[in-house]
């Protein structure tokens, strides 16, 4: 008779101590944190000016752009998609921002206009990827091109200066809390905490993980996979907009070449932070550590008076090493 006799033999659960160690090691934040401390320790010894409050605050300020946009990119990655359009988006949103501020002298309207553009771009990316099913790498490469071309077309390849000269706008990118911590760092940190909370403690965040981890299971659990992914692209668009606003404030204008290659920097940090390209794995804190490692590294190498190009070389090497280590770990454990 057609009788299948499969059954599993009982496997004892791993001992609690071993399981905990395994879980600890599996969390990519721990090795990342150690790496960050090693980087900081190394440069503190190598340079006297590295470990000063001022310098640390500066690095945090510099990392704010990648951190802010990185939150969105990481969320898209976790949902199992890719977003590389952020490099052009940070430049594109500066245009409505500056143009509307110049016309209305209102920071509020300027920011609203910028966010509107970010929302539209996120929605277009999300619609094409999630609803039409076009590979999101292709979609966002496409919008990367289109937005950059659009910026060149609109600006005629020059910068549009900020003529409203609002003090509040200047403060966004250049002000410091208590004269020390740059506002961008503060903004990025608040956003990081907020979205980390969402990803961990709101049903939406868990849906993002589920959709990226196993879309079929997520669908069976009653989630709308498309809607969740769509929302992730919108979040990414809006966060890249915030990064773009901070950048425009720092530059004091809408610069057509702003953010060239920024998408690669962000993707590198996100991947370094242990967020998997295949979806469902990774955390925003890991991403933040990835950004910080790269920022401190770049700052430290600069202090050692090494050519800035070394930073690119070292960063590239570190990314390969980190991802290779991650892969190795996954196969071993």
């Amino acid at each position: 008779m057609p009788q299948s006799l499969d059954a599993a033999h009982p496997v004892p659960p791993p001992a609690p101590a071993a399981a905990m160690l395994k879980a600890l090691f599996r969390r990519s934040e721990i090795p990342l944190l150690i790496s960050l401390l090693v980087v900081i320790a190394f440069f503190s010894i190598a340079s006297d000016t590295f470990l000063t409050t001022r310098n640390i605050a500066n690095v945090l300020g510099q990392s704010a752009l990648a951190m802010t946009a990185g939150i969105g990119v990481a969320i898209v990655f976790i949902s199992g998609e890719v977003d590389v359009s952020v490099g052009s988006l940070v430049a594109a949103v500066a245009i409505p921002l500056i143009v509307v501020m110049n016309a209305t002298e209102s920071l509020f309207l300027g920011i609203a206009a910028a966010l509107a553009l970010g929302l539209v771009v996120g929605a277009v990316n999300g619609y094409l990827s999630a609803y039409l099913g076009i590979n999101s790498l292709i979609v966002t490469l496409g919008t990367l091109f289109i937005l950059r071309g659009g910026v060149y077309l609109y600006t005629g390849q020059t910068a549009i200066p900020d003529e409203a000269m609002l003090e509040s706008f200047f403060q966004i990118g250049n002000g410091r809390l208590l004269g020390l911590l740059p506002y961008p760092a503060l903004i990025a940190f608040v956003l990081l905490l907020a979205f980390a909370y969402v990803m961990r403690h709101r049903p939406f965040g868990r849906q993002v993980y589920a959709v990226g981890g196993n879309p079929e299971v997520a669908r069976l659990a009653g989630y709308s996979v498309k809607r969740v992914k769509f929302a992730c692209f919108i979040i990414s668009g809006l966060l890249a907009t915030v990064a773009g606003i901070m950048l425009a404030s720092r530059l004091g204008s809408a610069v057509h070449v702003a953010g060239l290659g920024f998408e690669f920097q962000v993707v590198a940090a996100v991947v370094l932070g242990g967020v998997s390209l295949s979806g469902g794995i990774g955390s925003l804190f890991g991403m933040a550590l990835g950004v910080l490692i790269l920022s401190f590294l770049s700052n430290g190498l600069g202090m050692l008076a090494l050519a800035t190009e070394w930073q690119l070389v070292v960063t590239g090497g570190i990314i390969i090493a980190a991802v290779a280590f991650d892969e190795f770990k996954r196969r071993r454990i």
Binding site: I319, I320, R331
Partner: peptide
Amino acid sequence: LRVNSLIGTIATMMM
């Protein structure tokens, strides 16, 4: 090293 070539070659590009 089994690094996803999308990431690996971005890193090479940087280097």
